[in-house]
Amino acid sequence: MSTTTTPAPARSAGLRALLSRTGGERRGHTTVVDRIALGTAGLMVLLALAGPYLAPLDPYAVNLPAALTPPGAEHWLGTDANGRDILSRILAGGRTTLLATVAVIAAATVIGTVIGTAAALGGRIVDEVLMRICDVGLSLPAIVVALGLAAAMGPSLQSAVIALAATWWPGYARLVRTLVREVRDAEFVESARVLGVSRTRLVLRHVLPNSLSALYVQTTLDVSAVMLVISGLSFVGVGAQVPASEWGAMIAASRDTAVTAWWTVLFPGLAIAITAIAFNLVGDWLRVRTDPTLRTGGRR
């Protein structure tokens, strides 16, 4: 341990700043909170795959006599205005919400990676043009642009996914550009180039894999943000349509009963919030694990 105020190792400040966005500096080991978060996130993924089969009741079965039953033995989380079992709808709807979120992030990541890599490795002009386009994209409020695009394409979950992917990629493009440029200038790439490795091979085999860890940290952290916007779009009516059991649409469909039957709104929202928290914590955990400069903990 150094006794004087030795400056932190001169690792790229840009990358550190990008990665330290959540601010909670922790040691590298996995805490109880991390385990719970990992477990919850895993459970949510499982839910996306198996949810509809786990649902105790038919999520779409209308049962008007049982409408607005409070949580109890028969319906653990109560029923909505049409007598549908809320637990079953949450289990079945997780798939829709999570798949839509994953679709947005996957599309945005692919577009962002292609454009970011092109900007980093193309010439100055290519870089300049692409980055200005990104600036424009980042300068527009995502939810409003997505709302307009989705409304124009005709309200549906697909529209919402496409619209959101179209507004979300510039962030990834900028991240990938930074990462690729950093790796491009790193020593091992330099030595590979000296050894005569071709440019394409260099990008595919050496540059991209090294950039990926920061990228998947970012995608994990983005799950909650995208999920919130997707469900928000469903809530205002341009995403998943009634009677879909998508979580946001469930809240939208129950907004008139929110005051009289709180459970119709509370539980779908909790499902969103818990998933979002879990993915945020997992993202933080990944970030600390993959960034060696954050692992030491302590005051610096």
Binding site: A225, F235, I251, A258, V259, W262, P268, G269, A273, I277
Partner: peptide, 22 residues
Amino acid sequence: LLGAAVPVFWLGLILQAFLSAR
């Protein structure tokens, strides 16, 4: 952590249901 994870519209409905209505 909570603020970043809670859906805005849901928070609004819940606050309304409990603080206002109830």
